[in-house]
Design a protein around this nucleic acid. Structure first.
Length: 952
RNA sequence: GCCCCCGUAGCCCAAUGGCAGAGGCAGGCCCCUUAAAAGGGCUCCAGUGUCGGUUCGAGUCCGACCGGGGGUACCA
C-alpha cells in the first residue's frame, strides 16, 4: 500500500485503517474468548450459566480440506454467510455454536504430497496453518477451542472407535434398525433367530457350525464387512474407489484416471441396509428439493417383483423386474457375463439349427461364452458406454421356461445387463423395453407386445400405459387391465404359484470403504491364524498411522495390476503380537486405510465436545446442541444450519447420514439425522482466458477492448467457470485484505447475490462495498478530527420511519440468508442519514442502530464504531435492533389507480382507509374521472392499502 | 435421453399475484483536487428469454419451447 496523500482526511476509513481496526479486534476477540460457546457440561462448560436461558443454535460449515494453494475468494463465501447468520442470531438472543475444522486425510492432501515428495503430514499441517491465518483474518466468529483436524490422532482414534461400533453391529431387518452384534450371537445361540438370508453359505444349522464357521456367519451380518466382489479399481491412483467417487464416464473424480471393474477383496459398509430410512427421512429434513432429489435418485428405489425362472439344465434364474405385468412378453433371458450361474448354464454343444449370430463364431457354447466373457472383462467402463448403442451377446445354449406362458426361452449373456444391479439377470421383454427390443432385433428374437400402444404409436418398444394384451392363461388373465392393475394381478399370481413375489431394489450399493493409500485412518482390525478379521478392543485405540518414508501409492496404467497398500511396506507395523483374550499371539494388521469421507462423517459431533477423551461426544452435550426439538413435530434433530456446496450431495451427505443413523440406533446420539437444515451456497465464478495454444493465461493481466480480449497483445478466448489456481484466475483473500480490508471483502461477497446463487467475481466492483463502509464511518465519525459527530438530539419522524423499516427489512434478509437485501437496506438508511444530517449531528440512537445492524456483516468496523460511541463491551451479544410496528406504517399512502389493469393515476389516502373511502377518492381524481366518464365500471377491485382497479 | 435449478438495464441483483427498481458496478455530467481516486453530488439505462393460458391485474401461477448451469444414464 502507498502512503496516503497528505490531503486525505486523517480519520478517513481507508484500507490501512481497516487493517489496524481488524487486527486489533481479532486480537481482542481471541483474548476475551468472545466466541467461546460453553457446553452445558464437561470441560468446555465454563460460563454456561450466563447463556443457559438462551435458545441454542448450532451453525456449521462443510469444513475445507487444506490445499497448498490456500484459500481463494470463492472458498469463504459460505463461511462468511454462516458467520453473518451466527453473529446475527447471537445478537438476536441465541447461544450460538460455530466452529471450523479441517478435513485433513485423504486423496487431495495426499496427491499434493506425492507431487512434491513431502510427507503428507508435513504439507497438511503447513496448509492448515495457512488456512487458519487466512480464516482468522476474515474475522470469523468461531470458537477456536473446537477446531479439529481429521488427521490428528486425538480425532481419528474416535473415527476408529465409530468404525468398531459399525463393525460390531448388524441390521435387524424386522426391527429396521442396527443392533449390537452381541445380541445377534445371543439370539442365534438361543435359537430365537436363524442366520439372515445369504449369510450362511454352508447352509447347516447354527448349532452344527464350527467356531470359525460361526464367526464367518456373524461376519456376514456385520455393517462393516469384507467381501470379494467387482469393485472400481483405479490403477492411476493405486486404489479402489466407491461408486460415488467414479464419474459417469468411468473415471476417478479425483485426478480423472480411468477406472476398471474387477473383483477384489475389500471392506464395505452395509449402507444399503439403511436405504429405506435414508430415503424416507429425507422428507423430514429442511433441505433443498434438488439435493433431496439427487439423494433419492442415487438411492434409486424401484418397486416391482422378483421372479424365478426354471431352466432346462436345472439352476433357477432369479430376476428383478419393475414390469411384472409384461411377463407374458418375456421371450428370452439375459445374464450379465460375470453372473455366477453362467458356468452351469452353458451347454456343451450348440443345439441344431442355432443361428450364426447367437453363436458368436464359437464352435461350442463353452467357447463362445468364454470368449465373450473375456472380451467383456477387458472393456473399460468407457468402452462399454461408448459402444452402448450396439447390443452384443452370445447364446449359452440353454433354455429357461417362462412361468407365465410355459414357453421355452433362450438364455443369453450380454454386457447390457450389469452384475451390479438387481440380480444381474433379466427377463427380456422387447415389446416394452427399448434395450431388449434392440437386442431382439439384432439377434432375431421374437417380440410380443403385451401392452397395446395407442393407434398413432410409431416407435418400437412401448413403455407407456395402456391395456394389457396377449397376457392370458388358464389361471390368470391380464388382458384389458392397465399397467398398475396388471402388475398387482401378476404379483398376486406369482406369489400364489410360487414363482416370485413383490420386491424392492435399490440402485444404491454398499459403500466400498477401504483404500490402498497411506494418508488415511488405519483400520482397528487384525487377522489371526484363521484369516478372519477381528476387531481390536476399544482400549487398544488409537491405532496410530505409522510415520513412514515411502508413503507413495503404487500406481500404474495397467488395468491388471494389483492394489498394494503402502502400509504393507512397514513390516514391523504390519504384524503385531497381541493378547486378544486367547493368549498372546501373532496377528496381521489390516493394511488398507479408510477413505477420505470417514473423518467427515461425524466431525459435526466432535465439534460439540472436542476435548473429551472418554467419549466421542458426551451424550448430554449432543442432546443439548443436536437433540430433537420437542416443539417441532417429527423432528430429527441435527445441526440447525449446515452450509456447503452442492458437490457433496451424494458423497459426504449420504455417508454422514448413514453413520449418524447407526450411532442413533446404538444409542450413542439422540438425533436421528446429522443435518436438520441444509443450505447450498452458490459458487464464486470467474472468467478465465485461454491463448491460441490452449494454455490458460493470467486473468488479471488480460485487457478487454471492444468486446475482445488480449494478453500481451495477442487475442485470447474467454471462458466462464469456477475460480481456481490452475485456471490462473484466482483472487486471494489476502490481496483483498491488503487493498480493502476484511470487512469490505465480507460485505462484497454477501452483497453480490443471495447465498444460494453463484455469482461472478469482479475485483473492480469491490470498491462499492468499501465506499459504503466509508460513508457509514463518516456518518458517525468526523474524518478530519476523529471525533464523534453524533448528538443526543431527537430523531425526526421521517428518520424514525426509515430506521424501523430498515430494521424490519434487515432482519428479514438476515433470517432468510439474503444478506444482499440487508446490505441494500443498510445502504439506503445510510444514504438517508447522509443527506438528512449533512449539516447536523446524527442522533446517537440512529447511529447506534445503524452500527448494530452492520455488525454481523462487517463486525470489525462495527465494533470500532460501537466503542467510539462509548461502549466498553463488545457488541457481540448486544441486542439486535427491533422494529417498532408503529413506525412501519405511514399516516397516508399513495395508491395507484388502475383502469383495466393499467395505472392511470395515483391518489393519496389515509393508510387505514377502507375500500369505500379509497374508491371515492379514486373516482374524485380528475384523470380517473375522465377515464370513467361515459362508462360504468363493471367491476371495481379495491385492495386496501394497495391499489384500486376499475374494470370498464 | 431423463430429472432438477436459473433467465429482469452493459454487468451483479431487488420487487406478500398489485405503480417493474431497493442497492451496487460500469458509463455520462459536475464539485473537491497540482493531479488522481478508494472523495462528494447529480444522471443515463430494462418492460422481465419466446409463445400461449389462468386472472380485474402476471417478472411472480400453469403449459410448451429456447438458452445457460447441474445431476444422472444400457438401473431391468
Amino acid at each position: 500500500m502507498t502512503e496516503h496523500p497528505a490531503d486525505i482526511p486523517p480519520y478517513r476509513y481507508t484500507a490501512a485503517m481497516a487493517e489496524r481496526i481488524e487486527l486489533s479486534w481479532q486480537d481482542r476477540w481471541e483474548a476475551e474468548g468472545t466466541f467461546h460457546a460453553p457446553n452445558p457440561t464437561g470441560q468446555l462448560s465454563d460460563g454456561f450459566e450466563r447463556v443457559s436461558g438462551r435458545p441454542k443454535l448450532y451453525v456449521n460449515d462443510m469444513f475445507p480440506y487444506p490445499s497448498a494453494a490456500g484459500l481463494h475468494v470463492g472458498h469463504p463465501l459460505g463461511f462468511i454467510g454462516t458467520d453473518v447468520f451466527a453473529r446475527y442470531q447471537r445478537m438476536n438472543g441465541h447461544h450460538v455454536l460455530h466452529a471450523m475444522g479441517f478435513d485433513a486425510f485423504g486423496l487431495p492432501a495426499e496427491q499434493y504430497a506425492v507431487e512434491t515428495g513431502k510427507h503428507p503430514r508435513v504439507t497438511t499441517e503447513a496448509n492448515i496453518v495457512n488456512y487458519r491465518r487466512q480464516l482468522r483474518r476474515l474475522g470469523l466468529g468461531h470458537d477456536p477451542r473446537r477446531s479439529v483436524a481429521t488427521a490428528d490422532v486425538s480425532y481419528y482414534r474416535w473415527t476408529q472407535w465409530i468404525f468398531l461400533q459399525i463393525f460390531n453391529s448388524w441390521f435387524d431387518v424386522g426391527a429396521r434398525r442396527g443392533r449390537p452384534i452381541g445380541e445377534l450371537i445371543a439370539e442365534l445361540d438361543a435359537g430365537f433367530r436363524q442366520p439372515g438370508e445369504g449369510t450362511n453359505p454352508l447352509g447347516r444349522q447354527w448349532t452344527d457350525l464350527s467356531t470359525v464357521e460361526r464367526r464367518e456367519v456373524v461376519n456376514n451380518h456385520r455393517l462393516a464387512y469384507v467381501s470379494e466382489a467387482p469393485v472400481n479399481w483405479c490403477p492411476g491412483l493405486g486404489t479402489v474407489l466407491a461408486n460415488e467417487e467414479v464419474t459417469a464416464d468411468g473415471r476417478s473424480d479425483r485426478g480423472n484416471f480411468p477406472v476398471y471393474r474387477r473383483p477384489l477383496k475389500q471392506w464395505k459398509m452395509r449402507i444399503t441396509a439403511y436405504a429405506d430410512r435414508l430415503l424416507a427421512d429425507l422428507d423430514r429434513l429442511d433441505w433443498s428439493e434438488s439435493i433431496k432429489l439427487m439423494q433419492r435418485n442415487w438411492i434409486g428405489r424401484s418397486t416391482g417383483a422378483s421372479i424365478v425362472f426354471p431352466t432346462e439344465p436345472g439352476p433357477r434364474i432369479g430376476v428383478f423386474t419393475t414390469r411384472p405385468d409384461t411377463l407374458f412378453g418375456a421371450t428370452y433371458m439375459v445374464l450379465a457375463p460375470e453372473h455366477p450361474l453362467v458356468g452351469e448354464l452353458t451347454a456343451a454343444d450348440w443345439p441344431d439349427d442355432v443361428p450364426a449370430a447367437w453363436a458368436g463364431g464359437g464352435a461350442s457354447p463353452i467357447e463362445a461364452v468364454a470368449a465373450y466373457q473375456k472380451q467383456a472383462a477387458q472393456r473399460s467402463e468407457m468402452d462399454r458406454q461408448a459402444e452402448a448403442k450396439t447390443k452384443t451377446g452370445v447364446f449359452t445354449g440353454s433354455f429357461a421356461v417362462n412361468p407365465a406362458t410355459g414357453g421355452r426361452i433362450p438364455v443369453f449373456i450380454a454386457d447390457y445387463v450389469l452384475m451390479g444391479y438387481g440380480t444381474g439377470a433379466i427377463m427380456a421383454v422387447p415389446g416394452q423395453d427399448q434395450r431388449d427390443w434392440d437386442f431382439a432385433e439384432a439377434f432375431g428374437l421374437p417380440i410380443v407386445r403385451t401392452v397395446q400402444p395407442p393407434g398413432d404409436f410409431a416407435g418400437k418398444a412401448f413403455v407407456g400405459d395402456g391395456p394389457a394384451v396377449n397376457s392370458a392363461r388358464d389361471t390368470l388373465t391380464l388382458d384389458g387391465m392397465g399397467v398398475d392393475g396388471a402388475k398387482a394381478a401378476m404379483i398376486g399370481w406369482l406369489e400364489e404359484y410360487g414363482y416370485g413375489q413383490g420386491a424392492v431394489t435399490y440402485k444404491l450399493r454398499d459403500w466400498l470403504f477401504s483404500r490402498q493409500r497411506y494418508w488415511g485412518e488405519p483400520f482397528p482390525i487384525v487377522y489371526g491364524a484363521d484369516g478372519l478379521p477381528q476387531a481390536l478392543p476399544e482400549e487398544m485405540l488409537p491405532v496410530a498411522l505409522p510415520d513412514i518414508e515411502d508413503f507413495t501409492p503404487k500406481t500404474s496404467d495397467d488395468a491388471d495390476s494389483d492394489p498394494e497398500p503402502p502400509l504393507g511396506r512397514v513390516a514391523d507395523w504390519a504384524t503385531v503380537r497381541l493378547d486378544l483374550g486367547e493368549g498372546e499371539q501373532q496377528y496381521r494388521r489390516e493394511l488398507n486405510t479408510m477413505p477420505q469421507w470417514a473423518g467427515s462423517c461425524w466431525y459435526e459431533l466432535r465439534y460439540l465436545d472436542p476435548t473429551n477423551d472418554q467419549s466421542f461426544v458426551d451424550k448430554e452435550v449432543e442432546r443439548y446442541w443436536m437433540g430433537p426439538d420437542p416443539d417441532r413435530p417429527d423432528d430429527t434433530g441435527g445441526v440447525d444450519l449446515y452450509v456447503g456446496g452442492v458437490e457433496h450431495a451424494v458423497l459426504h451427505l449420504l455417508y454422514a447420514r448413514f453413520w449418524h443413523k447407526v450411532l442413533f440406533d446404538l444409542g450413542h446420539v439422540s438425533s436421528e439425522e446429522p443435518f436438520r437444515r441444509l443450505f447450498n451456497q452458490g459458487y464464486v465464478l470467474a472468467d478465465s482466458y485461454v491463448d491460441s495454444r490452449g494454455f490458460y493465461v493470467e486473468a488479471a493481466e488480460v485487457e478487454h477492448r471492444d468486446g475482445r480480449f488480449f494478453f500481451n497483445g495477442d487475442e485470447v478466448r474467454r471462458e466462464h467457470g469456477k475460480m481456481g489456481k490452475s485456471l490462473k484466475n484466482s483472487v486471494t483473500p489476502d490481496e483483498m485484505y491488503d487493498r480493502y480490508g476484511a470487512d469490505t471483502l465480507r460485505l462484497y461477497e454477501m452483497f453480490t447475490g443471495p447465498m444460494d446463487q453463484s455469482r461472478p467475481w469482479e475485483t473492480k466492483a469491490v470498491v462499492g462495498s468499501m465506499r459504503l463502509l466509508q460513508r457509514i464511518w463518516r456518518v458517525v465519525v468526523d474524518e478530519h478530527t476523529g471525533q464523534l459527530r453524533t448528538s443526543d438530539s431527537d430523531v425526526s419522524a421521517g428518520t424514525l420511519r426509515m430506521l424501523h423499516r430498515t430494521i424490519a427489512a434487515v432482519r428479514d434478509g438476515m433470517e432468510t440468508l439474503r444478506f444482499n437485501i440487508a446490505i441494500a437496506k443498510v445502504t439506503e438508511l445510510n444514504n438517508h442519514l447522509t443527506t438528512a444530517y449533512a449539516d447536523s449531528a446524527v442522533p446517537v440512537a440512529v447511529a447506534e442502530a445503524l452500527v448494530l445492524m452492520l455488525a454481523p456483516l462487517a463486525p470489525h468496523i462495527a465494533e470500532e464504531l460501537w466503542a467510539k460511541l462509548g461502549h466498553a463491551e463488545s457488541l457481540t451479544r448486544e441486542a439486535f435492533p427491533v422494529a417498532d410496528p408503529a413506525y412501519l406504517v405511514d399516516d397516508t399512502i399513495e395508491i395507484p389507480v388502475q383502469v383495466n389493469g393499467k395505472v392511470r393515476a395515483t391518489v393519496v389516502v389515509d393508510a387505514d382507509a377502507d375500500a369505500a373511502v379509497m374508491e371515492a377518492a379514486a373516482r374524485a381524481e380528475a384523470r380517473v374521472a375522465s377515464y370513467l366518464d361515459g362508462h360504468t365500471a363493471r367491476k371495481v377491485v379495491v385492495v386496501p392499502g394497495r391499489l384500486i382497479n376499475f374494470v370498464v
